[in-house]
Design a protein around this nucleic acid. Structure first.
Lengths: 228, 228
DNA sequence: ATATATAATTATGAATTCATAATTACGTCA
DNA sequence: TGACGTAATTATGAATTCATAATTATATAT
């Protein structure tokens, strides 16, 4: 018997996990705020049990902070946190580049090239939101090509935490241009299956991104918003 | 007011998390077995609520598998899983080497040298258990010197999963000798703060380890034990 | 008015309860 | 005997309840 077709309703805490993660990543629940447990339970029509199970998982993921007997709080993002997260993300991204070059098919390269060209269009039109979307899709496609689910899980978990910094608003024209140039190199390395080179570029690419985030975090109002 | 001294009792699910993790890593609960929820609740004198919270967290960690409406099962380890885990561990270990070389103090190097010499003694006496213990302590010390809590968390989570393969029994004399040689290089690179070199050695070191594990997994009875 | 002590309220952590799904035991019939 | 269907049992998922910790409101004294 093959169990792959068996009908399984996902449990409530798994469903909630997705919703809560989105609320935090999208910034609906901003860093530093208390997670309104009762309110969320009412909103999603569930009892506290699955909600609290989901919160425990999010705590391990680093998106919320559990204060014993005082409830759950949305994690703040400090510069120190990012200084720790980025090198790890860099290592994972470099690995994803290496593995992608080993496994990637021509079809997958073509798909990425298509995304790349779309991204360039968005860049030319200075459509930051769409640029960002295409950008993210490219990195996801490389991850997909790397074909390593452990890597994917870990990378996504870190990416989610960085994403909610919404650093994009702080992207300078100069930085943007550089990012696009780096993406040309990324595509080229992928096309030629130059794993080591791609790893190196992706690391550099992420380092530049970190600088953007760092600048963003250093601007006064942002520091307030995220760390108070 | 400084909250650093405030008294906080850890919640039950956190306590349980540690106990359960140990039970799985130590092999008391072998891969593929059902997690005896009721039994464990009685054993630790807790209700099902915190126990189930802990299981949800372990599921995210990859140590247990939750089958909807059928309970929790200790995750099996397949060769395919390890083929995914090892490259990721390699990348993380390489990073830990790089970062350690940037930050490590002379005291820390001395401590590692001491551990290294102890390890060599255990090797000469062919005391596998003690050798393994010292070995693990060295890798932990490098991780400590890297001074990156994100990295530490991720590395430990993967290391725990690999550790429970108990591959050591399968270590050949030849392999053991090679491992010791690699450790000489590790110490030397650390002493000289050669980050890139250390990263490279650690990656190689882990790759050899993977080969040992792979051989171990390929021996018939082990495959049965872990995957049936 | 401000600080402190006490009471009322609310939120949290965890046990318990309950509905339902899954499993096992039993009985029937070929 | 063994395949099938049904009943009894057990386990699971989630809601509810309950004891206690934390917070807020109120009262008292300086």
């Amino acid at each position: 018997m093959n169990a792959s077709e068996s009908i399984t309703r996902p449990s409530l805490h798994i469903e909630l996990l997705g919703r809560l993660r989105d609320l935090i990543i999208e910034g609906v629940l901003p860093p530093g705020t208390k997670v309104p447990e009762r309110e969320l339970c009412e909103r999603y029509g569930v009892s506290r049990t699955p909600m609290r199970e989901a919160l425990k998982v999010l705590a391990v993921d680093g998106l919320v902070w559990l204060e014993p007997n005082r409830g759950a709080w949305v994690s703040k993002i400090t510069i120190k946190d990012l200084e720790e997260v980025f090198p790890v993300m860099g290592a994972l991204e470099a690995l994803s580049g290496e593995l992608a070059c080993e496994h990637i098919t021509d079809d997958q390269v073509n798909a990425i090239r298509k995304l790349h060209l779309e991204m360039i269009e968005h860049y030319k039109l200075r459509d930051l939101a769409k640029y960002f979307q295409a950008n993210q899709a490219i990195h996801e496609a490389i991850l997909e090509a790397a074909n390593n689910s452990e890597l994917t899980t870990m990378y996504r978990s870190l990416a989610a935490r960085v994403r909610r910094t919404r650093y994009l608003a702080n992207m300078t024209d100069e930085r943007w241009e550089k990012a696009v140039e780096e993406h040309e190199q990324i595509l080229s390395a992928l096309e030629n299956r130059h794993g080591a080179e791609l790893a190196q570029i992706l690391r550099q690419h992420l380092k530049s991104k970190f600088e953007t985030v760092r600048n963003w975090l250093n601007s006064d109002q942002r520091v307030k918003q995220l760390t108070e």
